[in-house]
Design a binder for these strands. Structure first.
Lengths: 349, 349
DNA sequence: TGACAAATTTGGAACGTTCCAATTATTTTG
DNA sequence: CAAAATAATTGGAACGTTCCAAATTTGTCA
């Protein structure tokens, strides 16, 4: 097995030029003569040279490493998997490679992986912070001038850019749609109450209810883990309420799928007997049966935009924090059913 | 913003020792006196020093970089997302960090990301090869002595370790179970016929049928994309057959979910009117309604084992290729229904 | 052809670490 | 207490690249 690395010096020797020249052709500099460039490139191929970015990086400590980090709080959630794919797309085509780490909502883990990434010299970081992340956790990073873009969740007080979706407006639109279909008793299911995202969505729910002059009962808000299993649990509890809801907006699509599962377990037909709206529009939402009405967030697009924002900051050398809230739209499919009162619906059309 | 890096020399100066000593404490060497160690560590904290792995790595080119690469063919498939999580778990706790890239089944993309990873000096690679990957694509990598572990799919002729699941036995067990429940007409749904995995599973299906003395009709094998949407399409076609199947084994869980969706669209109740078995046991399989009977592959565990195997090879310096086929087990849940003939089922118990 | 400009090429000196051999400080021992 | 042994520290010289200033080659023009 080829043991010792081929270096720029080996190339130089074999091609009969100096290492400086080889370095120039590696950087595709216009300074070098075409014929020598060709010769050097040929040797590079022949010897199977592989560029050592570590060494290069050491010298030119300014422009950095061509590595970006992305750390998410739950990779098993397909929302984040798709987000990562979106990020990967744009960083890959910009010649970067991504460190991807999963924190599983552990701040400790998060601290570890971020510091490990720093040691490796990432040029930027895309972060979906674990629950309980403090602004101080990001302090050293931003102080060292490494651009950071927060996605999905914000960290109060951190001076970093963020890209989050319009949780308030999305949930408001969902509730309005259900109310427009004639539902009076609408539950809010799933999610952990100690997150900003939860509260933004909840506020959208509340505001829509009061806009539509519907009463707001606290027991209609049932929190749970933001997962399929959590959705099952939440609908179980909701179905036991005195005033039983006829519709629900869910914290996210995973919860919504769980809610559909739970309904079926009770011999209720989601979309017919009970209206369900999700949030995120993950890829399965359109192919599920019934197809899920949901708030489209386009996680992959979000990943792409986050990556673009980050690359912009990296290239700008030093970009100041900007907070982007990306708009969101209701995608009506089958799971929210038709209007309760058909005549009313006809009159609306 | 702190512009210039703090180096080992700055630490040395501030602590009144030599850079060599600082280096020793960084490596937790037993050679250094406890009091100096404490002093140096204090200074390290105070100055906010961050270790430069690139530089370190340059010097000790033998033991490598503490980076492992993982490239998968479809991160949006939760099977691979979970695999990645499993890998992440073990590499993270071994002090490594992972480059994660998604090839979306493109060999070109795959070649690019692998070579990019090489330039960054990965110490090992876990690869779920894109369709059409050739042994030659891996040649230079293995020639340079970097350990590679293939997962999920094998690459014919490549001298690398592999960890794949027992596709043949898994599918065989699934079919036997259905036959045992009294089904005579069992379809095989989903998957691309030009992959090794497909053919191994198909063979398991065929062998089981002939074991059970059931006829084998080619039209009962309906290929499709290995996705939820593909599953919908496959069951659509299967339901049109003259001899309509009463049960199906599916290429994977995603297909199986799609099949359930498609059945419901036809007012058929999966688990009651039609038996469905998946393959993989992704996390949603147990919470779905009906819970999915499936072949458990434990993607996360597979990721963990792949990572362990890789780390073993990395530490061993040079381990020879071993092919592990990991056993697999049938997990019976609701989607495959009860026995067709209840009396027969009672007699079996 | 000589002088000057432009185009190419080239030796070091970095970059931040580790390692080796060598030095100095501290103990132990006969 | 000197000598030997042990513990702790330390200056360079690497590692593979880029960058700078300087050197060399080539081309142009009068």
């Amino acid at each position: 097995m080829a043991k010792d690395r081929v270096t720029v010096i080996d190339i130089a020797r074999a091609a009969g030029v100096s290492k400086s020249t080889v370095s120039l052709v590696l950087q595709a500099s216009p300074l070098v003569n075409e014929t020598t460039r060709a010769k050097v490139n040929a040797v590079i191929r022949d010897l199977g040279y592989v560029y050592n970015r570590g060494a290069a990086n050491l010298r030119q400590s300014n422009s950095k490493s061509k590595i970006i980090g992305i750390v998410v709080n739950d990779l098993t959630n397909s929302f984040f998997a798709e987000l990562a794919v979106g990020v990967d797309m744009v960083v890959q085509s910009a010649g970067y490679v991504q460190f991807l780490a999963n924190t599983a909502e552990s701040v400790d883990r998060q601290r570890e992986v971020i510091s490990s990434m720093r040691e490796h010299g990432i040029s930027g970081l895309i972060l979906s912070p674990a629950r309980g992340t403090d602004a101080n956790d990001l302090k050293p990073l931003v102080a060292s001038g490494i651009p950071v873009v927060n996605v999905v969740r914000q960290v109060a007080g951190a001076k970093v850019s963020s890209l989050i979706s319009d949780n308030h407006a999305g949930m408001r639109d969902a509730v309005r749609h259900l109310a427009g279909l004639g539902h009076h008793c609408i539950a809010f299911l799933g999610g952990f109450p100690d997150t900003a995202v939860f509260n933004e969505r909840l506020q959208g729910y509340r505001d829509a209810l009061s806009d539509m002059d519907l009463a707001l009962h606290d027991e209609l808000v049932v929190s749970s883990a933001p997962s399929r299993a959590g959705g099952v649990a939440a609908i179980e509890r909701a179905l036991l309420l005195r005033e039983r809801p006829t519709a629900a907006v869910c914290f996210n699509d995973a919860v919504a799928f769980g809610v559909c599962d739970g309904l079926r377990a009770h011999r209720l037909d989601p979309g017919e007997d009970f209206a369900v709206i999700g949030f995120d529009d993950v890829i399965e939402a359109q192919t599920a049966v019934p197809a899920l009405t949901t708030i489209s967030v386009d996680p992959q697009g979000m990943g792409r935009r986050a990556a673009q924002l980050l690359l912009k900051q990296i290239n700008a050398g030093r970009a100041d924090a900007e907070a982007i809230v990306s708009s969101v739209r209701l995608v009506v499919r089958q799971s929210c059913g038709a209007a309760i009162d058909k005549r009313e619906r006809l009159s609306l059309l």
